[in-house]
């Protein structure tokens, strides 16, 4: 799977969130980090999109939408007739300075983030793409260190793990990561074998439970 990360931020170099994500992807393959500039060539942008399996728009939320630079890029690059993105996935990584409790019925902003981001869901639908559950980062600067690390791994999987939403998919992602670290530390090999043995046990148990369920029906 190849992922294209479209970064739309007017001041990328001054954004700690974007630098955090950019550095977090170092060492991974099969992704391209693409920062949108004021000037671009429609044809080459479309080529990048066509080559990707998963496309991620990454931006700070400005007045309940993306920065103008992304809107302009979308208006010129996206086209129902001249660009075929059907079957690809569309993901969003959105950061905001407001706390998550504000985005709900009865909260300060009144509406949930799913509603705010609806235009992107509609865009995915119109283009025949599969819309992925967005990653929303609230108040990055106030996150505890452990929460930042959790966010980093979640983000890495959003970009590089084809099955990031399922437990099986997450286990496979960590198995791959452990295999890459085995050479550094012999203990890692032992952890890897325990992880895989546990998975075998979990699948066996799950199969047995299913058999009982079927017999009871």
């Amino acid at each position: 799977m190849k992922t294209l990360v479209i970064v739309a931020h007017p001041e990328i170099d001054n954004s700690t969130t974007q630098q955090f994500f950019k550095e977090g992807l170092a060492g991974f393959d099969n992704y391209e980090w693409h920062e949108i500039k004021q000037e671009f060539e429609v044809a080459s942008e479309r080529l990048l999109l066509i080559k990707a399996d998963r496309i991620v728009f990454q931006f700070p939320l400005y007045w309940y939408s993306a920065p103008a630079i992304l809107k302009q890029w979308l208006d010129e690059v996206f086209s129902v007739n001249q660009l075929d993105l059907s079957g690809k996935e569309l993901g969003l990584v959105v950061s905001t300075g407001s706390p998550s409790k504000d985005f709900q019925a009865g909260g300060t902003e009144k509406y949930a983030m799913s509603e705010v981001l609806r235009p992107y869901e509609m865009l995915a639908n119109r283009m025949g793409m599969k819309y992925l559950t967005p990653v929303v980062i609230h108040q990055f600067a106030y996150l505890k260190e452990t929460d930042k690390q959790q966010l980093l791994v979640r983000y890495q999987q959003y970009v590089t793990n084809e099955q990031f939403a399922s437990f099986n998919g997450q286990v496979n992602w960590f198995v791959k990561g452990l295999n890459e670290r085995v050479a550094d530390n012999p203990e890692v090999a032992k952890l890897l074998s325990v992880l895989e043995e546990n998975e075998e046990q979990r699948h066996d148990l799950s199969w047995n439970v299913e058999q009982f369920k079927q017999d009871e029906d």
Binding site: E23, G24, A26, G27, L152, Q156, F174, G177, R181, L191
Partner: peptide, 11 residues
């Protein structure tokens, strides 16, 4: 490294 620490913490 920071990403390694995050990896093991989430593992």
């Amino acid at each position: 490294t920071y990403p390694d620490q995050a990896f093991y913490r989430e593992l």
